[in-house]
Amino acid sequence: MEFRRLGGSGLLVSELSYGNWLTHGSATAQSNAPACVHAALDAGINLFSTAAAWGAGDAEVSLAKALRATRRDDLVLCSGVYWPEGPSRNASGLSRKHLHTSLHGSLRRLETDYLDVYQLLRFDYQTPLEETFLALSDLVRHGKILYVGTSEWSAEQLLRASTLAAELRVPLVANQPHYSMLWRVPEAQVMPVCRRAGIGQLVSLPLAQGLLTGKYCDGGIPAGSRAAGDEAARQAIWPLLNKDLLDRIGLLRGVAAHAGLSMAQLAIAWTLQHEDVASAVTGASTPDQITENAKAAGITLDFEVLTQIDELLGTFVQTDPRLTFSPPQYR
């Protein structure tokens, strides 16, 4: 496993990290969770990403149980806040109240005294940004969180946040955008703004919900795939099962084979070619997936391979920065 510094900080994170969105919610997934987490540790992964709202807190509980035998100092634990965590009107968003209640719930479920990175999972249009960052400043000062991150924030929002972070001495060092061969939306605006502000990228969905593994290219829904999962998983993947797109993705098999990589390894290695990417966050339903994906670390793709990928995917690549999304009125 190779390691990179996260943004302008001194924190070293593994090139691949383990996220458990949609993978630790069901009973079957939870039964596989310890083996998946142990496979990640065996592969040298040190960054584990979860969130308070995922599985109504079960994702954090599942991760904590799997990590109990691991030294806390060896881990980079990330959890996030924004999505609803209960029926209360104050149980979502980025208000001072929700940041405090959500964080302490996460610390309890994760069985830890602090988080390495506390991620603001969407921009909150209904809470003043100053309120959010004053609360974060307090949490940093009290040692509850070490660093702060964002997810799916626009370039303009990140500019405002980085200014406040500097004024209030909040170590804003991470951003977690969706980013893959197919989804290059952050490249035009978000990544340049982050680079100037010392914010690194912990990119999510590098496999585009599993599309870039090639598992859907032959038609049908493979057993055990996300498209065959629970309702949340199906909603995430089904809109992407476009035949023309899947045909193009299928052509990448030859590119991957020529490079001596699996389709998944090619897709993850592609994201790691970007100089601003510190780590690619991947999930898994089996330990073997983790072990195979981790082999993408340290891979350098040559110019010919990168050009072939661009040519084959063509107009299916999304680049419009306006597609960076935070719900305008969630609460």
Rank of each mutant, 00 (worst) to 15 (best):
T112H: 08
F48S: 05
R108D: 05
D73R: 09
V76F: 05
G105D: 06
H100Q: 15
K65G: 11
R108N: 12
D124R: 02
V76D: 10
L99D: 01
D58Y: 08
R89I: 05
G80M: 07
R96G: 09
R96I: 01
H98S: 05
G86I: 11
F123K: 00
Y82W: 15
E60S: 02
L47A: 15
Q126R: 05
S62I: 10
N90A: 10
Y82H: 15
K97Y: 15
S88H: 07
V81Y: 05
H104C: 07
A53V: 10
A53T: 00
E131T: 04
S102T: 04
G57W: 01
A53M: 11
A59S: 15
E130S: 14
R96V: 02
L75Y: 08
R68W: 10
A64L: 07
L115A: 02
R122I: 01
R71C: 12
L120I: 07
L47C: 13
A59N: 11
K97G: 03
Q119G: 02
S92C: 07
E111Q: 15
A56G: 12
E131H: 11
D73I: 01
D58E: 08
A53H: 12
E131F: 02
Y118F: 14
A43F: 06
D74W: 11
H100R: 13
T112S: 11
V61A: 15
G57A: 03
G80C: 08
T132E: 02
I45W: 10
S92Y: 09
E60N: 03
T127L: 07
L63F: 13
L103R: 09
P87N: 13
T127E: 01
L129R: 08
L77E: 00
Q119F: 02
Y82R: 03
L121D: 12
C78H: 02
S92Q: 13
L110P: 01
F123I: 07
S49Y: 12
V76S: 12
K97H: 14
P128V: 00
P128F: 03
Y125K: 11
E85I: 15
F123N: 07
C78N: 13
E85D: 12
N90E: 12
V76C: 13
L121Y: 06
A52G: 09
R71E: 15
L77N: 09
V76L: 08
A43D: 00
I45N: 08
D74R: 13
L77V: 05
T112Q: 02
D58Q: 14
G86A: 13
E111F: 06
G55R: 09
A59L: 06
H104L: 14
G105F: 01
L103Q: 05
E85T: 15
G86K: 06
V61H: 10
E60R: 04
G86H: 09
A66D: 10
L77F: 08
R109T: 01
S95T: 00
S106N: 09
R72F: 11
L77W: 04
G86T: 03
Y82N: 02
S102H: 09
R108H: 15
H104Y: 12
D124M: 00
G93N: 08
V81A: 14
E60M: 02
R96C: 11
S95K: 04
G44F: 10
A59Q: 05
E60L: 06
K65P: 01
S88N: 07
S95G: 05
T127Y: 00
R109A: 06
T127S: 06
N90F: 14
Y118R: 07
V81G: 03
A91F: 13
R122L: 00
Q119L: 14
F123H: 08
H98A: 10
S106K: 08
A52H: 07
S49G: 13
A56E: 15
